[in-house]
Amino acid sequence: MAKQSPFGGSIVALVTPMGDDGAIDWDCLERLVEWHVEAKTAGIVAAGTTGESPTLSFAEHRELIAKTVKLAAGRVPVIAGTGANSTTEAIDLTRSACDDGADACLSVVPYYNKPSQEGLLRHFTAIADAASKPVILYNVPGRTITDLADNTLLLLSEHERIAGVKDATGDVNRLRIQQKLISRADFRYLSGDDGTACDYMLAGGHGVISVSANVAPATCARLAAAAAANEEEQAFEASDRLLAFNRLQACEANPIPVKWALHHLGKAGPGIRLPLTPLGEKHRKGVAMAVEGLE
């Protein structure tokens, strides 16, 4: 039986399209949102890591979320990336996103300053206390260094506004451990790792916040739907179509490969902001071949 969830299925970690000068391309953003609605993408993350949130000013961050909400027009949920390594900043971003109509907020483990588990507990509790919409926690130790421990997640799951976790560890066993620890039936488990997303969803995860969905929204939607219905053969078939691009995502830092792939497909301009740079020449042929024929 398919899992029913307000936050599940294939959720795209949407890029922020930019011109050559790095300015946000609002017309392209509209086209991308329409493409995802038509492809049955289950949700859009705006201003996340893939959206180059570290390079956005506060004003741009808020405008990007507000415009994405307006463009989605209730046809697909919008989850706002509002994490920061300053608790005060994360609270400000979260309040703004809630005020601007986001359906939920995605809050990453603080990066660089390496808080303790007690610090994480207090940080996320303060954010959830300040939020008026659900908060999804984001654990990506490959970027943040600090890992959100399973026992800390258990304590945070008791907060009524903490709705779930995006797990980008790539370790499906973490899902099984967390499911045994956390008794809340409505707590959402979302993969943040395209390479293991199929296994994660077949093991009971509710969906994926996907980078690959930027270039293959329909395929990612089929994968998530098949996994939710426990249709393993169909799920693995869709997953296999994504295999080459999923592997090449790591050839340079995200979102460099996916932004170049969108440009190659004619879906967006080449713009990206420093300190990130366009995809290196040596990787372009491989990425181009990997995305050919995806939909």
Rank of each mutant, 00 (worst) to 15 (best):
S191Q: 00
N151K: 14
Q117S: 06
Q178G: 02
L29S: 03
E60R: 08
S57A: 04
D194K: 12
A66K: 14
L120A: 03
V291D: 02
S210A: 14
L64Q: 11
L148E: 10
E281S: 07
W26K: 07
P6T: 12
L29V: 04
A226P: 00
A213M: 04
R31F: 00
A235T: 06
Y111A: 11
A218F: 00
V215L: 03
L93Q: 14
L71E: 04
V140Y: 12
G266N: 05
E89Y: 09
A253C: 09
G83E: 11
G271W: 11
L14C: 12
R241A: 15
C251R: 09
D99C: 09
L148Y: 09
E60D: 05
A104T: 10
A126Y: 11
W26D: 09
G269D: 05
D27Y: 01
P275V: 15
R75T: 07
N85E: 11
P255S: 05
E281W: 01
H159S: 02
A227T: 02
L274E: 12
T55N: 10
E281F: 02
A185H: 13
S86P: 08
H263A: 15
I44E: 04
K3E: 05
A197W: 02
L32M: 09
G266S: 09
V78I: 08
V33I: 06
E295L: 07
L121Q: 10
G48R: 10
R31I: 00
L106P: 02
A163L: 12
F7A: 03
D167V: 03
G22Y: 14
E160Y: 04
T144K: 04
P6E: 14
K166A: 10
P141D: 12
A84Q: 06
P217W: 14
V45C: 07
L29Y: 06
R247Q: 14
D92L: 13
S107F: 01
A130L: 06
G205A: 03
G207D: 04
V215E: 05
G101C: 05
V45P: 09
F7V: 01
A261T: 13
D147Y: 03
Q117L: 03
S57G: 14
